[in-house]
Write a protein that binds this DNA or RNA. Sequence first.
DNA 1: CTAGGTGCTAGACCTCGGTCTAGGTCAACG
DNA 2: CGTTGACCTAGACCGAGGTCTAGCACCTAG
Lengths: 147, 147
Amino acid sequence: MADGGLSIGRVAQRTGLSVHTLRLYERAGLVAGEVRRDKSGRRVYSAWDVEWLANCVKFRASGMPLTTISRLAQLVREGSGNEAERLTLLRAHQRYITEQLTQLHDCLELINAKVASYEQHLAAGASGDPWQQQPRHAPTEHPRQLR
Amino acid sequence: MADGGLSIGRVAQRTGLSVHTLRLYERAGLVAGEVRRDKSGRRVYSAWDVEWLANCVKFRASGMPLTTISRLAQLVREGSGNEAERLTLLRAHQRYITEQLTQLHDCLELINAKVASYEQHLAAGASGDPWQQQPRHAPTEHPRQLR
DNA sequence: CTAGGTGCTAGACCTCGGTCTAGGTCAACG
DNA sequence: CGTTGACCTAGACCGAGGTCTAGCACCTAG
């Protein structure tokens, strides 16, 4: 019982995706095991499907585009024999994530610095404006000097 | 000299943004110090503008929406007195970034595991398919059991 | 029997963040 | 002088990823 399958609504609840999105994902080929239907045409998701979808959610959250997930799903659907390509995709995303991590750290550092500066600024009673351009020395008219 | 201002093209080069995007950002109010123009109407970016834009790039890369950056720019443009709100924005993004970091780590963990499993799989000569649904026991017709 | 809840499809619609085009100005170079 | 190249504005266009609607089919409960 329990595990004969879940309706789309249930799956939406436990993946955090909307039913609309679930249908979209299916149309887009993101779902690796094609979803069964009950006798009146309603989707019946297996536990495995749900697990897969949970992974999809993580992939999306980490910036993997639908097309890539779709490709991956296709490979899995086709079964053994293409493990090398799957690995390639995964490694690429691995790299992508680590790049993102460094960028995020980068930005976080910037923000931390700004936050610290503002906190201090506010604590010490406002004086100068951190993060402000210096008073424009002159609305200077500049001789064009490009190149 | 050197530092009287840069043309949009130069700025594009050193921020990595396209000139189109730079103009877009300006229209959208992302640029904190309004950009001067030379006598024939061309944008002249100050070093400070460029620095600000570089920060914008980081903000964008870390997922801050244009509207938020725009708001922040506005606050900075308005000058001292609104530091508290700036701080709020920054703190919110700080939180957002750390959430992203955990999500990324989460996904990275998943991927690492999969990668490891595939590497092992490939090294050991293909046998079973990691990441495959178990052979469907039966194309079962399930009694609807929702709710 | 009817109403309510959930699901179905097809397709329209929306936001976001860019990107590109048309048509024009300007300055420098040969 | 004409050409070239960078720039200008206004506005169209685009792809990604959702989200929502209309119109219909079920099923179950009252």
